[in-house]
């Protein structure tokens, strides 16, 4: 447990030469119920004549242990006045002692020698006493009896997480269903028995026989005729699209299809090598329009 709160008292607790002026001293706020492992910090701010300096060698060594008190950290902040140097020294100690009963301990006194001046001066930091409190009474063997139940951790509210989980799950399922609806090609799917769905299935079944292209064109024309309710020809496309606006987004492809179909069926033009593949693609696109995809 760390004790970080400190108390400030301005009265000078120890004597000092006039060349070393103590500006403030801050000791730990609490002087009782200190336990093993606690960290205690204190700091002192002093003003010294500019002729004097505080060398690093005067500082106590980090890790030094005295009477169960180990120096954990030392820091010095220096600032310069008009004719003085101001040092703020912070010492951090940690208690490392095992005792079965309460006892009085102290942060050790420190004497930090100054150099540079005519006199031999030092910054004296007095000892600071406190009450050490053992973790358990009468030793570790009775620790079990002395143990107190831990406070029950607060329960996390799962309702929000459940709601998010179900929403995500619903989204996932909807997305999957959507993907299946868009990409799968099964007769049992909704709206999968429309004219172009049937045409697409029939065209997919066609092999590479000589009449495949013409049969594919026939399936496409049958689908157009079925939707239009009469034979549909190129000069009636505007009527067809006006009556079936869901196909408007493939208007250009439909127009091209009728041009190609007329050329293949009536002008005896040789079909391109990939015409069957084009018809498969177009029939799928028209099927998607038919299904509102």
């Amino acid at each position: 447990m760390m004790i970080v709160s400190l108390s400030l008292f301005a009265s000078l607790a120890f004597a000092q030469t006039t060349d070393v002026k103590i500006l403030s001293t801050i000791n730990p706020q609490t002087s009782n119920n200190i336990q093993m492992g606690d960290v205690l910090s204190r700091s002192i701010e002093v003003e010294v004549d500019a002729a004097y300096q505080l060398p690093k060698t005067s500082l106590p060594m980090k890790g030094e242990s005295r009477n169960g008190i180990e120096l954990r950290d030392v820091s010095v902040r220096t600032s310069k006045g008009s004719s003085t140097n101001i040092y703020k020294i912070t010492l951090s100690y940690q208690v490392f002692i095992s005792a079965a009963k309460p006892l009085v301990m102290q942060l050790p006194d420190e004497h930090l020698a100054l150099i540079g001046g005519a006199k031999a001066l030092s910054i004296d930091i007095p000892a600071w006493k406190f009450w050490y409190a053992p973790l358990v009474a009468e030793g570790i063997t009775n620790a079990k009896d002395n143990m107190l139940p831990q406070s029950k951790p607060a329960l996390i509210d799962l309702n929000m997480h459940y709601a998010r989980f179900w929403a995500a799950l619903a989204l996932l399922v909807t997305g999957l269903l959507g993907l299946v609806y868009v990409n799968a090609d099964k007769r049992w799917l909704p709206f999968m028995n429309g004219a172009f769905a049937q045409a697409h299935r029939n065209i997919k079944k066609l092999g590479h026989e000589q009449t495949a292209n013409k049969n594919a064109l026939m399936h496409m024309h049958q689908a157009f005729n079925k939707i239009y309710g009469a034979n549909l020809f190129a000069n009636e496309l505007e009527h067809f699209l006006a009556a079936n606006p869901k196909f408007l987004k493939v208007k250009q492809e439909i127009t091209q299809f009728f041009e190609q179909s007329n050329a293949a069926l009536f002008a005896n033009q040789v079909a391109s090598a990939n015409q069957l593949q084009q018809l498969k693609t177009l029939s799928k696109r028209l099927r998607d329009c038919e299904r509102g995809v």
């Binding site: 013409k214 009469a230 034979n231």
Partner: peptide, 17 residues
């Protein structure tokens, strides 16, 4: 007649197939 008689004829295409 123009609305009903299909082209290409389904029957003929099936025969050709």
């Amino acid at each position: 007649i123009l609305s009903t008689v299909a082209v290409p004829s389904q029957t003929k295409s099936v025969q050709a197939k």
